[in-house]
């Protein structure tokens, strides 16, 4: 798999505080890469070095194999966490201005703006000033501003904050569409649910250090604890020493819910045992959520 972005030994210090401590990350082409971490972990600093807003003290960033430089700005789209637009400017003018700053000709910019506005249903707002729009509408304008120049690399910092569920869904679809059209996406957030849904790869960052990096499913399987969830119609009576009952709950339907940890053998052994004891309603492997992995790793 080709890496679109390669970050090597990136180091940045503000006064005495190290915000990026020898960070190494590979961001594969045409994937959604989740950058996770608690507030103040160094996510924004990392993003700002990629967008060349700040320069690292040492380390390198390569984009498509070439050392990152000013000419690459054209390839990058950025939706910062702190949203901001010129409040007195009209929507159409503002998008045109931001697109031209990215290097688009006036005509190309107009075509792209019309296209995106149509998709997000804001094409009737061109003549409105930003300050007349609701917060959600402003977010849509800002999103378009970040993609209007068809970037190869799109960096989204907490893109869903401030969106209602309908708009969130719409935005998710657009992000997935962008991915299917070949865009590489960096997605920074501390909301794990969206990460699980969207991201192929993730990196977990805390206090300037990368704690975890890789494919989401690989990471999850790394954190699997051979624990299974089973729902039975009656209580288990006879113990089995091949596995450990971690928990037992009676649910509102009067069913018995168990968490069972395998000590030896495989899941078929558990199923065989459960069937022999009671009626098996459901059986799943317990896969750790990103939330759990996040908390566990950060605490370690």
């Amino acid at each position: 798999m080709d890496n679109y972005l390669q970050i090597n030994d990136l180091y940045k210090k503000y006064n005495t505080q190290v915000v990026l401590n020898k960070v190494n990350i590979n961001i594969p082409q045409n994937k959604i890469f989740g950058l996770l971490g608690p507030n103040g972990a160094g996510k924004t600093s990392l993003i700002r070095t990629i967008t060349q807003i700040i320069a690292p003290d040492s380390g390198t960033i390569h984009i498509k194999g070439a050392l990152l430089s000013e000419k690459h700005n054209r390839l990058i789209g950025y939706l910062p966490e702190e949203r901001g637009l010129y409040k007195k400017m009209k929507v159409g003018e503002q998008l045109l201005y931001l697109a031209q700053l990215k290097g688009l000709s006036k005509r190309d910019a107009r075509v792209n703006i019309d296209n995106w506005s149509g998709r997000l249903g804001i094409d009737t707002w061109y003549e409105k000033r930003i300050e007349e729009l609701s917060k959600g509408m402003q977010q849509k304008v800002q999103f378009i501003a970040s993609v209007v120049h068809n970037p190869e690399l799109l960096i989204l910092d907490e893109p869903f904050s401030g969106f209602d569920p309908i708009n969130t869904l719409q935005l998710k679809e657009e992000i997935l569409k962008l991915k299917s059209n070949g865009t590489t996406i960096i997605f920074s957030t501390h909301r794990m649910d969206t990460v699980e849904e969207l991201c192929d790869n993730i990196a977990l960052i805390n206090k300037g250090n990368i704690l975890l990096e890789g494919n989401q499913y690989e990471i999850k399987s790394r954190y699997k604890s051979l624990t299974y969830k089973a729902v039975l119609s009656s209580k288990l009576q006879k113990p089995n020493y091949d596995f450990e009952i971690v928990s037992e709950i009676v649910n509102p339907q009067n069913m018995y819910e168990y968490e069972i940890k395998l000590k030896q053998g495989n899941s078929n052994d558990i199923i065989a045992y459960l069937i022999s004891q009671s009626e098996l309603i459901s059986f799943n492997e317990k896969i750790p959520s990103m939330d759990e992995i996040f908390v566990q790793t950060v605490n370690n």
Binding site: T51, Q52, I53, E70, N73, I76, Y78, P80, E82, R83, G84, L85, Y86, K87, L98, L101, K102, G103, Q142, A145, S146
Partner: peptide, 13 residues
């Protein structure tokens, strides 16, 4: 203060 500067300086110096 309205934070647009962060968007703009990804496009220009």
């Amino acid at each position: 203060s309205n934070r647009i500067v962060e968007v703009i300086i990804t496009s220009v110096r």
